[in-house]
């Protein structure tokens, strides 16, 4: 990560309140995901569960750059994106446990949640499909002249899906207000990017469509925010899509069933010790004199309380009514 050192050497300016907010929001995602992992281990969450731990700076940095009305769409590793959008932790956790109180009343599960109110367009389990859907949302923005930008997230694995490039072409051709974010956590499930991808600098993937690309230190929330601001402004001006490659890392396995034998413990430990996005902001807050250990502990307590409550809610919320099986298939008269 050659550019990582550059961006950390000259951190973009952020106020104490901003930094504290990013710290709190990233910590909420991390604690939420840790709890989700525990509930999974206890058998309270079934099926698939992809944790976002390690990648928190990407969604929080982007969210800090976005404006009210901008939309988010992403793939299956979506819990962090939903919390970043301001969706309620209770509703997300209860969807993980498949309960009536979940965002999709238990009918979606971990990978399939939505919130019209928060402009979150899902949670999609088909790898790469959301990139093309987000392009359509961006088209609707342009058509309705609403000034909004769609932020479409995908992973380094999804970057090899053909339909991504169909959509890149359309977005550039029609100058759609969309920002493509490839969260390059360097592993498509168990396949390291070097084993799947001929050109591993994914920000170059837009070149033949005239889509500018930028490599960003995705472990640095301020670097993400600055890159996001530029890309969003460009989209809002009608200049079309930008591709941001967020170099990031997931600490946990691809999903809960992944023993992660395709990488070494040392590699994971090195990322945790030297590049953790939350520790990075914590250090900034303390070094700049914006907060002390006590204040940060208080934030941790507040965040833990939200997460504990969500886990409680997710276990107390009733199972969906059996009649729900047959609803929401087609429009009901």
């Amino acid at each position: 990560m050659s550019e990582a050192s550059t961006s950390r050497a000259k951190p973009p300016k952020a106020t104490a309140a901003e930094l504290t907010g990013y710290y709190r929001d990233m910590l909420l995602i991390r604690r939420f995901e840790e709890r989700a992992g525990q509930l999974y281990g206890m058998g309270l969450i079934g099926g698939f569960c992809h944790l976002y731990i390690g990648q928190e700076a990407v969604v929080i940095g982007m969210q800090a750059a976005m404006k009210e009305g901008d939309q988010v769409i992403t793939g299956y590793r979506d819990h962090g994106h939903m919390l970043a959008c301001g969706m309620d932790a209770n509703g997300v956790m209860a969807e993980l446990t498949g309960r009536a109180g979940g965002y999709s009343r238990g009918k979606g599960g971990s990978m399939h949640m939505f919130s019209r109110e928060k402009n979150f367009f899902g949670g999609h389990g088909i790898v790469g499909a959301q990139v093309s859907l987000g392009t359509g949302i961006a088209f609707a923005n342009k058509y309705r002249k609403n000034g909004a930008v769609c932020v479409a997230y995908f992973g380094d694995g999804a970057a090899n899906q053909g339909q991504v490039y169909e959509s890149f072409n359309m977005a550039a051709l029609w100058k759609l207000p969309v920002v493509y974010i490839v969260e390059n956590n360097q592993y498509a499930m168990g396949t390291a990017i070097q084993r799947s991808t001929s050109e591993t600098h994914l920000y170059k993937r837009g070149v033949s469509f005239n889509i500018p690309g930028e490599e960003v230190d995705g472990m640095d929330v301020l670097a993400v925010r600055e890159a996001g601001k530029k890309a969003l402004a460009r989209a809002r001006k009608g200049e079309g899509p930008t591709l941001l490659e967020m170099k990031t890392y997931r600490y946990r396995g691809h999903s809960m069933s992944d023993p992660a034998k395709y990488r070494t413990r040392e590699e994971v430990d090195a990322m945790r010790s030297h590049h953790d996005p939350i520790e990075h902001v914590k250090t900034l807050l303390i070094d700049l004199g914006h907060a002390d250990e006590d204040a940060l502990k208080e934030i941790d307590r507040e965040v833990r309380a939200i997460v504990v409550a969500s886990a409680e809610f997710a276990q107390q919320s009733p199972e969906p009514d059996p009649a729900e099986l047959m609803t929401d298939i087609l429009v009901e008269a």
Partner: peptide
């Protein structure tokens, strides 16, 4: 694929 997907996104919005 891109055409159908763009239409879905438009419809969702």
């Amino acid at each position: 694929g891109g055409i159908v997907a763009a239409a879905i996104g438009m419809g969702a919005y």
